[in-house]
Simulated assay, not measured.
Amino acid sequence: MSILHNIVSKKELKRRMFFETEPRLTLSFYKYFFIKNTQEYRDRLYKNFYKYNVLGRIYVASEGINAQISVPKKYYSILKKFLYNFDIELNNLRINKSLDNEKSFWVLCVKIKKKIVQDGIKEHFFNPNNVGIYIQSEQVNSMLHDKKTIFIDMRNSYEYAIGHFENAIEIKSITFREQLKKVIQLMAYAKNKKIVMYCTGGIRCEKATSWMLFNGFKHVYHLEGGIIGYVHDARKNGLPVLFKGKSFVFDNRMSEKISDEVISYCKQCGKSSDVYINCKYSSCHLLFIQCENCSVKFHSCCSLECMKKYNFYMLNNDLKKISY
């Protein structure tokens, strides 16, 4: 019987990833559709992804599939063909390529979830397939210049901080579930206005448009392929990219650069910076923005307190090694 889960330590897999020289592509895709047997679906995916040396995070639920993966460049066409033929629902699936080729994932993780994106929606009559109108870069740019159109960012606050469309409304939150509760209340005045929603790859803003329509909003749009799809389409058609800053990503890269503008600030000194790190003191592990100078000054920690604890921990480890 095949082993359908990872059996190598994540530390070792991460080491292998950094030493790997084979060129890879980072891809993302999702699709809302009904999956009857999620366990069987998950296992079939795992077997084939493992065969093609795919790394990354894939969620399977009765409502569909959501994936962010890294694949060897030589297998991209084969993997694409496999997905198109794997399930009729995935035929001509939209696959987003990342905006850079930096290393992203080091483990293959295929999980069964209750939902592919945690939304907190419990209404029985809600139909996630009744979505807003897709728009691409030309129309996006046109609507950005229309003062009567409202742009809403459906990403978390820490994602918004390092990059967003100018004048886009931030729905302050740390979870998508929280955002969906807030956006209906905050935008109640705009039920008859044009609303454009966006997120990184499309999965959150697609469901958000369904939720807005369900709650009586009339004119709702969303970026096809999210920010990633927008940037690719604009560059392909020689159009200006109007997104400012970086796009946050949930993998080893932390972000993808889209424009040269730095619109965020170091948590500690307030200088311009758009580099996210996790506090080096593992018991804290806070995600925060830190400039190069403060990284040196605080030893990549979020505060003097965490730096002292981290240094004390490292000193004790060194002493233990010497004693042995």
Rank of each mutant, 00 (worst) to 15 (best):
K74Q: 10
I169A: 04
S70E: 13
S273N: 08
V231E: 08
F298V: 02
H299L: 14
K194D: 15
N167H: 10
S98I: 06
K111I: 07
F214L: 07
F82V: 02
D274H: 03
T209R: 00
G216S: 03
I184S: 04
S300K: 10
N192P: 01
L13R: 07
A190Y: 06
E170P: 09
G64E: 05
K80Y: 08
L45H: 05
Q39K: 13
F105E: 05
Y281N: 06
V262R: 00
Y84C: 06
E12A: 15
V110P: 00
V220Q: 04
F151P: 00
N192I: 06
S323A: 12
L90Q: 07
T149Q: 08
N167Y: 10
R94G: 06
M187Q: 11
K80M: 10
V71P: 06
M187L: 15
Y158P: 05
Y189D: 15
I35D: 05
I277K: 00
K113A: 09
S77L: 14
F217Y: 06
I195K: 01
L242D: 11
K148T: 15
H299W: 12
E224A: 13
G245M: 06
K308H: 12
A61I: 08
N37I: 09
G201Q: 04
I150Q: 04
V117I: 11
M314Q: 14
I121N: 02
R155P: 02
N167M: 09
E159D: 11
K181V: 12
P23W: 05
S157W: 04
I171A: 01
F312A: 14
F105N: 03
D100G: 04
I174F: 15
F19V: 14
Y276K: 01
E20V: 10
S157D: 11
F243L: 02
S142Y: 15
F288I: 02
A61V: 07
Q268E: 13
P128R: 02
I133N: 04
Q290K: 05
G225K: 02
K147N: 13
H219M: 12
S62R: 09
S62V: 12
